[in-house]
Structures are given as structure tokens and as C-alpha cells.
Write a protein that binds this DNA or RNA. Sequence first.
DNA 1: GTCTATAGATTGATAGAC
DNA 2: GTCTATCAATCTATAGAC
Lengths: 209, 209
Amino acid sequence: MPEIRLKKTEIRAENESRILKSAERIFARHGFRGSSMRMIADDASIPKANIHYYFSSKEKLYRRVVERIFTVWLEAAASFETSNDPHAALHSYISEKMEISRLYPDGSKVWANEVIHGAPIIHDFLTSALEDWTNSRIVAMRRWIEEGKIRDVEPRWILYMIWATTQHYADFAHQIETLNDDKALSINQWQQARDTVFDIIWAGLEPKD
Amino acid sequence: MPEIRLKKTEIRAENESRILKSAERIFARHGFRGSSMRMIADDASIPKANIHYYFSSKEKLYRRVVERIFTVWLEAAASFETSNDPHAALHSYISEKMEISRLYPDGSKVWANEVIHGAPIIHDFLTSALEDWTNSRIVAMRRWIEEGKIRDVEPRWILYMIWATTQHYADFAHQIETLNDDKALSINQWQQARDTVFDIIWAGLEPKD
DNA sequence: GTCTATAGATTGATAGAC
DNA sequence: GTCTATCAATCTATAGAC
């Protein structure tokens, strides 16, 4: 009965996707413990028991959500080229990170929430992919410094500054909107913010003549 | 019986202080919903029922914790002088914010956690004190721009950059330590990070000649 | 002011009919 | 694959003895 099995696979894919999307939104808004399976089920318009049918436990569902977020992060990470043009590499990376904050703020919030609480569930992500990536970029930035392409600044503080500033626009969106007359940032404001973030950081790295 | 009343007052002050300190640590580590009154009671070595005796409900205890954090924030806010020396004002403010991240990371985490989740409990802080303070500093920075003392950059993106970067060292401390061979930053590293944050931001604001 | 016992509500998870 | 009913654990909060 190949037809029936195909259909079941499609139903599974469709439902899993709907649940993951709702879970990301609910976890972002209420945190892991503050989110109940019932809230996620209601948001996805799927009976609560079915969430357990597709994802055996709340923790496994949460981990799947974080894995999705990490995939998005990896795509942005790739845009930080270790070529020999720091201006282009940093501009591309910062722009990409700001776009992620604008388009997927929930993912950023779940990640922030997890790290704030000591990364009890995703610690392995930090000590593997993130650590490798960070060290490779630090090496690249050190080379730029030796070649006189950027100023002599400890690379890791620059990376933290980029992460902090770009992710702030997602994680603290509520505060930013409150200070913006309770309105979300307009496209123009997003562009201006993105350009300012890059301009300030680049002004601090650009070699003085 | 003035003696007995005095002693009771002292006991109350002592116990309330112990509970608030434990609550801040537990809330920072596990979030509001992830923290139970039992965890806070155990951390403070005080019977669970007594927490309810001193603070009528979990939410009121949480609010008292956030009020304490806001007091610390206000002290740092005062160090951002609206005088006519932007270099001194920003250096003082950034240094103060970095010190807060170093000395009171738990408070910063509770605040971040709250804003990430849409500030359900502290929304009034955002729309009163924080909004007033922010607007006053934006006015001051606009004046600096008109007087040619800093470059023409939208002040609010600068403020967000300062908040994001300084608070990142508290909120994402776990990630930073993981990338630092699982060790907390040394005093030297804190100083270097603080100086770098200021230098980069000032390089982007300092008028070009 | 301290502390045990417990009420009342909510939660993650599962059993079992359809 | 869907969904109702329900269990067992946990939580906030309080009553009441000391």
C-alpha cells in the first residue's frame, strides 16, 4: 500500500512542521518551563496528546526547536568569510545577523533564554560547532591584524560586540518597540540601525592612516 | 515593649534580605516559571511557608527583586551626564554598565529574561522611568551632534548598542565562559573588554577632522 | 515568628476507544 | 493517525499547632 504510506508521511511532515513553528513561538514568549504542552497544542490547533505522539517528550520537542535555530545560525556564520577582505566579510556577516533578528526573532529569543539559564539543554552546541567556528574566525581576524588590514583589537571582544548588538534587536524587541511609541521598527529604521551597527564597528577597526 | 518590636523588625529585615538575594539568584538561573518557592526557600535556608509569610505571593516577591535591579540600573543611569563632554559621559556610563555586568550578573539576567518574554510584569518600568531617561539622553546627544562634538548618528541606535554590548557580558556569561576554556573572565580580561567596548563606540562617534 | 500538613490547581505523560 | 479521559507528580498558597 505505497499510496497510504506516502500520505501518512506527508501528514507527519505537515504536522511536525506546524508543531515546531508553534513551539518556537510559545517557547520564545514564555520560556521552557513557562510553556505548557497545552499552550503549544492550542497554538498549533492540534490535540495535546498528538504532540506527544509526534515528539515523545517536551524536552525532545524543545531540542528540535533549538536544532532548527542553530541551522539558521550556521547559515549566517557562513557569510563571515575568512577571505582577506575584512570590510566585506564583516559587512556581510553583520547584515545577515540583523536580517535574522528581523525575520526570526523567536529563534533568537529561545537561544538567548537558553544561554541565560546556563544552557542546560544545548551545552553540546556551544562546545562543538560554536567553539570551532569562533576559534576559526579569531584566527582569521588575527591574520588581518598582522597584515595591517584592521587595528590591533582582541578579536573575541569584537565578535561578542557583533553578537550582542545584532541579537539585541530580536531579544529586546519588546523594549525597543516600547521606546518607539509601541510600534515595531519600520523597514527604514531597520536599515538605519543595521548601517549604524556596521559603521560604528568598522570605524573602530579601520586602520588609522 | 519597644525592645521586642525592634528585634522583630531586625529579624524581618534580615530574613527579607536573605530571601531577596536567593530569589534573584534562582530567578536568574531558572526564570520565573522555572523557579519554585521551594528552590528559593532551600537556597535561603528558610522554611517554604515563611517565604509566603514575608512576601505574600511569588509574583510579589519577583516584583521586589526586579525593583532592586531597577535601583542599580538607575545608579548607572545617573553616571551618563548630559554635560557638554560626550567623551567623559560615555566613558563613565559604559564603565559603570560593565561593572554592573561583572558584579551583579544575576540582576541583569532577570531583567533580560523579563524583557525577552514581553515584560509581562515590569511593563510599567519601561513606559515610565526608562522611557523618560532614554528621551532625555537622546536630547542631550542631539545637542552634541548640533555642536559638532560627535558625528551625526541616530542616538537611539547608539544607546541600544551600549546596552546590548555591556549587558551581553552578564546575560551571555555562560557562553563567554565556555569560549574561555570554561573559566570566568579574569580581571585583566574584564578591563580589556571594557576598554575595547568604549574604544570602538567612541571611534564611531568621534568627529572626523 | 516558625514550621508541618494539606488543600486546590496545573502539568507532563499515557491508556485505550475510535 | 486522532482524541478523550485520567493518572501521578509538582506547584502555589494557606490553615493551624507551636
